[in-house]
Each structure stands twice: as C-alpha cells, then as structure tokens.
Nucleic acid binder design. Structure first.
Lengths: 162, 162
DNA sequence: TACTCGATGCACAACCTGACCAGCATTTCG
DNA sequence: CGAAATGCTGGTCAGGTTGTGCATCGAGTA
C-alpha cells in the first residue's frame, strides 16, 4: 500500500484504467492495440499502477442485490468511551452483512454500511449489531435509491488532467 | 441486471468468487485446477454469475488514497422539496470527488461519499456541492479511519451456506 | 422409463502471456 | 555540453491459455 503524495497519473494511465473498467476481459495485447501503444508499455504501466497501489485489485465486484440483499442501510453507532472501538469493530467484522465501517467525526463514533434481505431482515441484522457490549446507541438510515452508484472513473480522469 | 429473488449460490460459486477475489490474475484453467473441477464447469459458472449480475464487473478497483485523495467524508444534504432530487443529483454527478450518492430516510434527503486531497481541499469540494440550487443544508462527517474496508466475501460465504 | 440439465473429459486451432532484445527520443544531472 | 537514465517502440520466442464443439454420464423430474 502506497501512501505517498507524489503519485501522478498521466493521460495514458487514465485511458488504460478506463478501458479496463469498461472491458475487463480484454488482455494486455488488446489494450495496447486500442490505446495505440506498444504492448510492453501497457504491461509496464499496469505493473506500476498495481505496484503503487492505484489499482488495489482486479477482483470481481459482487452485487449484494443480486444475491438477495436488496436493502442497503447506513447505521451510526455511539460507543461507550470506556472500552474503545476495538471490541465493537471485532464484533462488526464477524457480521457478514456489515460491508464496511468507518470511525467518524461528529456526535457518533462509527458509521457502517449494512445490507439485508428485506426491511424485516434488516431488523435482525441491527439486533445482531447492537448486541455488542459497548454500543450505547444505534441510529439507522435506510438507503432508498442509489442516485450515483459507486464510481471512481471521473476522479481518475480529473486526477490525470493535472 | 437481475433483480429476481431466486438467485441461489452454491458452495462452488462461493469458492470460485473467493478464489478470483484473492488471485484475480489467474485464468479459468488455473481456477479449475484449484477448485478440482473441470474447466468447462468453471467457465459455465463464471458466465452464469456474470449473466445473473452477481458479478457486476471485473474491473480494476481504484484506491482514491493512492492517487492523492486521502480524505474521505460523508455528506448529508437536505433538498428543497420544491424542485426534487434530480437537478441536485445531476449537479453532484458532475463533481468527480462525489463517489456515490443515495437518497435516504430520516431528516436528510441525500447521503453522499466524497473524497478530497486534504481537509482544506475538502472545503473546496463541499463549496462546490452546496453551490447547487435546491440544497438547503449540508452536514459533513469526516471518516477518520476505515475500521472495516469494503468487503463482500463474508456475505457471499454466508449466502452460499444456505 | 424417457427427458432435461449440469458436469466431465477430450481435442483443436487461435491466441495471449511473460521474457527478452536493440534502437531511439527525452529528460536529468554532473 | 556530454553522459547516464528513463521510457516507448517494434520485434522474436516458447509455452500456456482460451473459446469452442462434442460425446458421455449421473441426478432429478414428469
């Protein structure tokens, strides 16, 4: 993992990422043809992007909705100051429906994204969450619709322009 | 895109997804060897998973932090009822730093995830967001640390168990 | 029992990968 | 200014992989 600041994408990097995002199954050779550069160049760029951590992974993106988890919700948790975050985090990590969790500023301490099969099922998941010692309060917000699905391409483009 | 309920993963599906997540660069043939099944089987499963939308994409996952956007924040927006969400959503979609946006229940109307190069830069992004007509209030929460990075594998495993 | 579906094993040609090389332009730096 | 370093190009090579089609086999079902 790279945390340096000096990472700079150029136009070719951005186009490569974009191309891979749109048609992931094409290989390096095909990329080089589409981008109009030599195959070795594409290979070198890709290796570098992965090495620098810009491309964190090429793995499959799973759609929770497609496997029956159609309800998304954001839950903020207040944690008892006494014990700290760690026990709660460990507890959350054991719940598959907890997709991610961040510590946050503001009146709450933890924000997590959870999914469930239905609103009824959501109750079960939340019960499971708050069953942890150290959680003093949980506040649930249901995501009604995804206005902008998770995306990074615009960011890549704008980072490459500079 | 499949929204049906009858999607059922079996153990092989889950192991395949897991394998691909861990070592994305291996091909179908290598998968079949690791999983102990015929190559055609892996091919058929993969095609089906993609076809059913369970695997939404194989594209590269970009790490915003690695390209200089180290600050993550969640912003909730209240929208003027008069005009509806659409103009605001369109405005947000034009800002690269807005990674995703959901309409939500509760006192706010929209929750979005944004990134920035620094806390100072975050101010710039927020100013850009609230410059839209129709936003009556914005509340910013900064993500201090990622306790649980986005993950779906545990969910896949638990879905396959049933 | 006959049928359908999914998995297996096999074979083929076409293709891609990783590795290597020499040449050339650009940039960096003493 | 000249030398070294860097990055891109276009090429080769062997070996592995892909997409495809086909016949077979077992399990579940009408």
């Amino acid at each position: 993992m790279n945390t340096g600041q000096d990472v700079q994408l150029d136009d070719l990097d951005a186009r490569l990422i974009e191309l891979l995002a749109q048609e992931p199954r094409i290989g390096v050779l095909e990329c080089s043809r589409r981008l109009g550069v030599a195959r070795g160049t594409v290979q070198a760029r890709l290796d570098k992007l992965i090495g620098r951590g810009v491309i964190a992974g090429l793995g499959p993106e799973i759609s929770p909705a497609a496997i029956g988890f159609g309800v998304t919700s954001f839950v903020t948790l207040e944690i008892s100051q006494r014990h700290g975050h760690d026990p709660v985090t460990a507890h959350l990590a054991g719940i598959p429906e907890v997709l991610e969790a961040h510590t946050i500023t503001g009146s709450s301490d933890l924000l997590c994204r959870i999914v469930a099969r239905s609103n009824t099922d959501l109750q079960r998941v939340i019960d499971q969450i708050v069953s942890s010692e150290g959680i003093t309060r949980a506040s649930t917000i249901i995501a009604l619709a995804e206005q902008i699905p998770y995306r990074t391409l615009p960011l890549v483009r704008s980072a490459a322009r500079s």
